[in-house]
Amino acid sequence: MFQTRTLLLLTTAGAFALAGCTDPANLPNGAQKTQEGAIIGGVVGGLAGLATAGSNPTKSALLGAAAGAAAGGLIGNRLDQQEAALRQSINNSNIQIVNTGSELKVIMPQGILFATDSAAVNPSIYGDLGALATNLTQYPDSVVEVVGHTDNTGAAAYNQTLSLQRAQSVASILVSNGVPSNRLVPIGRGEDQPIASNLTEEGKAQNRRVEVIIRPTA
């Protein structure tokens, strides 16, 4: 047990070292995300190496950390580039682009996408969805979840159905702009994953949204 804990600590420390010694506060935002990806990849790789270790678990864990840090750093760097390209091509201040270091989220409120109780996409947003589709085709190594969300007004079953229909509508526009359908996974979450309180109109407006979640595959 002691040896396992020691190896876990070594793996984590090694991942941080492999990610670089620069203070993250002094790095530009993109570099911070790349470093975060390297750290996450290093820890995961180290744990994988430890889990499959043979006669030399320390070596296996550190080799796994090195490989994981390299892969995580590459993914983080690619996400930085894709994020920058998205910000250049989408000029709608209502659309949020969030880079977590392991995935990108493009968050669009219902107000710019749909009328109340409708799953028909507003034509005024077609240009931004087209720009998103172009970005996805330029960065093909990912799977993309298109996730619909509602507030808690009305019946939960109705909200679930509406959220899925909205996700499918957005996904179909991305497909019509060249994104392969097998990369897209439409999902309806209904009212189950609020990001704000449903007790206020402002909170409800935040909860009514579609999130396009871009997850690298390699």
Rank of each mutant, 00 (worst) to 15 (best):
Y158P: 00
V44S: 05
T134K: 14
L47S: 05
T161I: 15
K33L: 08
A13W: 03
V144D: 06
T34G: 04
T217K: 12
G49N: 10
G46H: 02
Q82W: 07
T153S: 14
I75L: 12
A84Y: 02
N177F: 15
E211Y: 05
T22N: 14
T58S: 09
N182Y: 15
I95D: 13
I40F: 04
S93N: 12
N198Q: 06
A196H: 04
L86M: 05
V170G: 06
V98F: 11
G46C: 02
V210Q: 07
E202N: 12
G101Y: 00
A65G: 01
V44Y: 11
D192H: 09
L162R: 15
T200F: 13
L50Y: 03
G46V: 02
G101L: 04
G130S: 13
G20H: 07
G76E: 13
A156C: 08
N77K: 11
V98R: 15
T116F: 01
G68T: 06
A133W: 09
R183V: 13
T34M: 02
S55R: 10
D151F: 08
T22W: 09
V185L: 10
G190D: 10
N198D: 07
P123C: 02
C21E: 09
L136I: 00
T4P: 08
L129Q: 11
A131S: 07
G14V: 06
R189H: 10
V212L: 10
C21V: 07
L113N: 06
V175E: 09
L129T: 10
L199H: 08
N207G: 01
Q165G: 00
L50H: 01
D117H: 07
G42V: 05
D128W: 07
G68V: 02
F2S: 14
N92H: 11
L47D: 04
A17R: 14
R209W: 08
T116W: 03
S102E: 04
N135Q: 06
A31T: 13
N182E: 07
S118D: 13
I90P: 15
A156R: 11
N26Y: 04
G73E: 04
A15S: 09
L162I: 12
V43G: 06
A131T: 05
T137S: 06
R87A: 14
M1Y: 12
D192S: 13
T161V: 09
P123I: 01
A218P: 08
G76I: 07
G101C: 11
L199T: 14
K204A: 08
T4S: 06
Q206R: 14
R5A: 09
A157K: 07
S181C: 09
C21T: 07
R209K: 12
A61H: 05
A71Y: 00
T200C: 09
A67Y: 09
R78A: 01
A167M: 06
S60H: 03
I213C: 03
Q206C: 14
L7I: 03
D128V: 10
L104W: 09
I40Y: 13
A171D: 13
Y139P: 04
A19L: 07
M108P: 15
A31W: 08
L63G: 08
G14I: 13
D151E: 03
A15D: 02
V106G: 05
A15F: 01
V175P: 15
G73L: 05
K33Y: 05
